[in-house]
Design a protein around this nucleic acid. Structure first.
Lengths: 360, 360
DNA sequence: CTGAAAGCGCTTACAG
DNA sequence: CTGAAAGCGCTTACAG
């Protein structure tokens, strides 16, 4: 690999001049500058040593994002936007790829030129977070939180909005309200479940175990969820689904199974981006802004690094809100039950016509 | 900022030992190693100079991605996946942020430790691509292509699949087929328009200028598009929409306006991810895989950098395919026309019932 | 504006 | 396994 000396020789100048050109010092004539840059290209010069490329923050993850999740995409987008107002660049790192067997995380990050890390916590990643915290390397966790005084957590608190969502259903007259959540046991999902449980208990509604469903967070699982909900001996009249993809899958499957939403089943989904607008009917949802979370994480990490890490408190939780749209309505008169094969049982009494006919 | 010398003093060892620990050399006792690492943390040591952090490839972009576009998110996801099989890390760079006024792109990239760049071409970015090409820096362009022998282009050729899409509509009996595209004039959209035009001409179908619509690539524009299509004096019976968000917006608006898809209007959308599965009815679409494009771009760039750039030909175009789903059917008997306010005119003759009634 | 030379941060044979 | 010292790539006052 070419050094600065070889480039100097090729350009017929001193190494000092090459250095000046590369570092963009003022006092070089345009003519010399182009001559040197040509030599740089001809020799394929790459600086072997550099003083400046340690201005990196990293998004650290383990393996691919959860399939179909728009959360990570929005997160990265937010970080990219925040880049414009900090003096660091963002690099993606997968320690599973190239961290040496007995290398500490600090060593790994230092040799990458990384000054601080955003940890995208997924299942099984908490141990990595703990290890990095133990080494006291500047770090911010998104997507999970747990007691660790050395880590900053960036998250949106979904307890309050979840409780309000259930309150909305209760106010409409619902009592058999189902709850469906991801299989992962992160803190965010725990908040949503607490919101559900507290609202139900405070209203004196029965909180049956058979109203709680655990499903993977993928779209096809919404299909199965609808079938399981509607074929239960006494189906719920409403459901709160805490994963965007599952909620969309369920609403689409309802079209196919001819379950009328919201007339026969009210649905409150969850949205961390803008998915609620992409389904018909437009979905009532507990919402948070993953792009905003990405931005906050990046800005907070930059502040941590600047301050020499220990002095900066975690940012306050981002807001989560309930957005009322068209998938919630009062419960049906009577019980609507649909078997897996589409057979309808327990015909509700005094059912209004399925859908008003088109004007023509 | 601490140097290796200060750390050595703090740990009570020589600078050689500190260097060994930082670079993870074998012959250091566990005891000394932890002592040194503690000192590294205590001093807040950051390597001022380093030999290794020039293994970076960059995603270079200008400004934010097009609003609501999932293309960039999928692209980054693909690059992230490809990272696992190359020895480079991926960094995001926005030259508009910190490139010095009269600094060449080569200088800018070199001081960042970047060896090659993926250029995400958006409107107005082509000049940047040309400049980087003129400097002969290793670069791969995604999202656009144009004649420039010094650049590699990674893209999916959508001409063939677009032509097949229109062929499918023609075979169903459609003749008034509309075409709706993004306002940007990139090469990909030009391909799609050529495919449309050629299929129409070869079938002897009339190619009216009033069948071609230009709309921004955002979801709400699908709403306006449907209104414009359906309120035309003689509305088309089918439409090919070359942007995912617009297609989704149109299908959802059709529910609201009570336009029956596919019975009254056939829709072929465009999908670079999995959006077609998220609408009801499941959307017939010309499909490409943006994640795949991101992966190919990263692998190709790594090969370029390894080979000293000039010897590696662009990868062949990725495949684009037509996926038949539920939004296409034979044209209606007669003309269906719906005004902006929802009024239906020109009632079709022998119209079958709007929707088969639910089993109950 | 440019070069010769001192110097900086770090790495690495060499010696023990 | 560790240190003293030579050396490498690069930067930067200093001189002209």
């Amino acid at each position: 690999m070419s050094t600065i000396r070889k480039v100097a020789q090729a350009a017929g100048v001193s190494i000092a001049t090459v250095s000046r050109v590369i570092n963009h010092r003022a006092s070089v004539t345009e003519e010399v500058r182009t001559k040197v840059l040509e030599a740089v290209n001809r020799c394929g010069y790459v600086p072997a040593v550099s003083r400046r490329n340690t201005a990196l923050l990293a998004l650290v993850y383990a393996g691919p994002a959860s399939p179909g999740s728009s959360f990570d995409a929005a997160l990265v987008e937010g970080m990219r936007l925040a880049m414009d107002s900090v003096d660091y660049d963002l690099v993606m790192l997968n320690p599973a790829r190239d961290r040496a067997a007995d290398e500490t995380y600090t060593q790994y990050f230092l040799r990458k030129g990384v000054r601080g890390v955003i940890l995208r916590s997924t299942a099984g990643f908490r141990a990595v977070c703990e290890e990095i915290a133990a080494e006291d390397f500047p770090a911010v966790v998104v997507g999970d939180r747990f007691p660790n005084s050395r880590l900053s957590f960036v998250y949106a608190d979904s307890y309050g909005a979840s409780k309000r969502a259930i309150g909305h259903l209760l106010a409409l007259g619902h009592r058999r309200i189902a709850f469906a959540a991801n299989e992962s046991d992160d803190a965010d999902h725990a908040d949503r479940y607490r919101g559900y449980g507290d609202a139900m208990r405070e209203a004196g509604a029965t909180l049956h175990a058979d109203l709680v469903f655990r499903v993977p967070a993928r779209r096809p699982d919404g299909v199965q969820l609808l079938r399981n909900l509607m074929s239960a001996p006494t189906p719920p009249t409403a459901v709160y689904i805490t994963d965007p993809a599952v909620a969309v899958g369920l609403v689409n499957e309802a079209h196919r199974m001819q379950v009328a939403i919201p007339r026969e089943l009210s649905v409150i989904g969850f949205d961390d981006r803008d998915t609620r607008n992409y389904v018909h009917p437009k979905m009532t949802a507990v919402c948070q802004d993953a792009t905003h979370l990405g931005r906050v994480a990046m800005l907070h990490l930059a502040a941590l690094v600047e301050a020499g890490r220990h002095d900066v408190a975690s940012p306050p939780p981002a807001s989560t809100w309930l957005e009322l749209n068209a998938t919630t309505a009062p419960p049906p008169q009577g019980t609507v039950r649909v078997l897996h094969d589409g057979t309808r049982l327990d015909v509700p009494q005094a059912l209004p016509p399925r859908r008003k006919s088109a004007r023509r």
